[in-house]
Amino acid sequence: MGIKRWFQRKGKQQAEGIETATIVILGSPNVGKSVLFHKLTGRYVTVSNYPGTTVEITRGAMRYRGRSYKVIDSPGMYSFNPITDEERISRRLLLQQKPELALHVVDARNVDRMLPLTLQLIEAGLPVILVLNMIDELERDGLRLEINALRQRLNVPIVATACHNGRGIQELKEQIHAYLAR
């Protein structure tokens, strides 16, 4: 990976077909949104193990099973009630883009603190997939999340991932595809 892919990026982008739907990635700062964006689109953004590094909105394309989707990475957002400029940008992005799908990325170790935003997205009537990232960290703590129980209560698709090593990405792509190809 790396160098070769990096140089091929430009050519690849031109070869992409018509993007059928828009997907927005959102969540609190530092839960792995930019890594996920990289895994879905192959496009490198300031993937940084450091909160607050996505200040601008980044766009890319995800291709899966012959379809192409527009993917937008957003700056961090703790809640639907914005305090900082970046939160304001994220919310406006969400409301103006009217995405076909919102991926709410959360840190699995702190789901309880991040679920209120999921709730707000569901209340707003936005189509949501909840991405429980850093699931490996939760497991290392000796904990397990009953994903089925959560899914029943929330009634949205939930995928557990560990973006940095690629775990769950395939399942997430499959879920996205299933959701949008309906």
Binding site: V111, D112, R113, M114, L115, P116, L119, Q120, G142, L143, R144, L145, E146, I147, A149, L150, R153, L154
Partner: peptide, 18 residues
């Protein structure tokens, strides 16, 4: 919202190893 989130996770979280 906060209490709702906590209750939801409490019901779904289990410890299977120290």
């Amino acid at each position: 919202r906060h209490q709702w989130g906590q209750a939801l996770v409490e019901g779904a979280l289990e410890r299977n190893a120290p």
